[in-house]
Design a protein around this nucleic acid. Structure first.
Length: 330
DNA sequence: AAGGCGTACAACCGCAATCAT
DNA sequence: AATGATTGCGGTTGTACGCCT
């Protein structure tokens, strides 16, 4: 066994001893590492010790993951954890890329933390750790069988459904400021202040004419997001063309149509193009149908953390040419 | 006290990309 | 251009350690 690069040599494996660490640190800090394959032979000689019986690959890994002076040791903070989740939602298992957003952390560390902690946490919240969407079992469990029972006081013809995750950073809608989405992050409050929201997972439970209706127009200034009838996981989110509107889709719709399909629907509605999915109705609403604008949305809840993260990913794809250029300003 | 088990994390492996010749 | 060496990466394994019975 052993590495091909050093199969002829007497190579030690397993955990590193303090002496081995010392040899490697001394060598790297004084000579650097021009070639990792030559490091083992050179390391130790300056201390009049025997050469390091490790292969270059092992030396490199030990230095990068453990001995580098700029590493941040200790447990991950809540902010780091959230960053990992957010970037993972965008990039997937690209640990090296994710680690670049966490100064002092290595890809190995991030990967281990993901596998040992975050993964389990997401699963316990009913989220698929790979797709970040609601697991099918939880989706079924959270589905509302009778919305009017849950929210008997609402007069709304629509109920916007979502699951509410604790500590997701939700702040109640502020009537004085007509932007409907507020979070405790800077993404919405400083950069974008959307004035309305479009959803294509709205259930028009009182009107059979709107049974497959895909959009909801402006919420207006008098509605909030602070009550409790819910079953939608807003997994796909995007901005409309003028960036005053956000559209939100359920996990089901996202899978069925993909991001671009949903965005196309929104754009189609804005351009007055009829479609087979009730877009004519959406168009009328978007133009300001007063009956619809009077609809109450007192029953809507959102997972703002998730919403924010998905929108963040939309920022990335719009503003940056490459995933590698992700720049975070939290 | 000792063995079993689960967890966290360090380290290894194989592969692909990149570099040097 | 071809080829071997090196580097970087993600998946997987191994090991130390704490907890429980």
């Amino acid at each position: 066994m052993g590495h091909r690069c050093c199969s002829k040599q007497k190579i030690k494996r397993g955990l590193w001893s303090p002496e081995e660490d010392e040899k490697l640190i001394t060598h790297i800090t004084t000579h650097g590492h021009k070639s990792w394959s030559s490091v083992p032979k050179l390391a130790g000689t300056s201390l009049s010790l025997s050469w390091l019986q490790r292969c270059g690959k092992s030396c490199r890994l030990r230095w990068i993951n453990y001995l580098r002076p700029d590493l941040k040791r200790g447990s991950f903070t809540a902010e780091e954890e959230q960053t990992i989740i957010d970037v993972h939602r965008i990039l997937g298992n690209r640990w090296a890329q994710i680690a670049k957003h966490l100064p002092g952390r290595t890809d190995n560390e991030v990967k281990n933390f993901w596998n040992s902690c975050i993964k389990k946490k997401l699963i316990s919240q009913g989220l698929d750790p790979q797709t970040h969407t609601l697991l099918s079992s939880h989706r079924r469990a959270s589905a509302c069988s009778n919305i009017s029972e849950i929210n008997p006081n609402t007069s709304s013809i629509f109920t916007l459904n979502s699951q509410l995750i604790p500590n997701a950073g939700m702040i109640p809608y502020n009537k004085a400021q007509p932007d409907i989405v507020q979070t405790n992050s800077t993404i919405f409050s400083s950069e974008y202040q959307p004035s309305s929201i479009i959803s294509n997972n709205v259930q028009a439970h009182d009107s059979p004419n709107f049974s497959d209706f895909p959009y909801v127009p402006s919420f207006g200034n008098t509605h909030n997001f602070c009550s409790s009838s819910c079953c939608m996981n807003p997994c796909a989110v995007g901005f409309s063309e003028n960036e005053n509107n956000i559209w939100v889709s359920s996990a089901e719709n996202f899978r069925a149509q993909g991001f671009e399909g949903l965005q196309a629907q929104v754009e189609q509605a804005k351009e007055n193009k009829p479609s087979e999915n009730g877009i004519d109705d959406a168009r009328e609403l978007a133009k300001g149908n007063p009956e619809m604008n009077n609809a109450s949305f007192e029953s809507a809840n959102f997972d703002f953390g998730l919403l924010e993260s998905v929108i963040a990913s939309e920022f990335m794809s719009r503003d940056l040419s490459s995933m590698d250029e992700l720049a975070w300003n939290f």
